[in-house]
Amino acid sequence: MRLLTHNMLASPVKGANNAFPLKLVCEKKEVMEADFDAEMVKHLLSRVEYDALRATVESIGEGPLPVWDDGLKENEDFLRQMHHILLEIHVIEGELECPASGRKFKISDGIPNMLINEEEV
């Protein structure tokens, strides 16, 4: 799971307000190189909840990311940093924690399990 995927996931716990972003506990991460394409990174940025990403990145010991400024969209150094953050860091093992309920969701082999009831399947 990459950090952009984390950035789109909310807590499935019903009635949990402010259930975004999920707190990310990263036990094992890998960096896999990917080809840089500035246009693609700009496109991905258009979907990012930046403040949530910035806090998450800091919490797992990456970054720091700058405070948002519209000028960053055209800043090549920043786009390269975002490329690394969004596309090259893979969380392999860890946990996602619902900020409202404290309920934890495991990430194993890179796949977060957002099921509440295992017996659903």
């Binding site: 789109m8 996931l9 909310a10 896999m32 796949i111 977060p112 957002m114």
Partner: peptide, 21 residues
């Protein structure tokens, strides 16, 4: 380079909490 997420699609994306975007 595909990410995978385990969830029950209809109940996970039920529109609560302002999601899905």
């Amino acid at each position: 380079e595909v990410d995978f997420v385990r969830c029950d699609i209809p109940s996970y994306f039920d529109g609560e909490n302002g999601f899905p975007r």
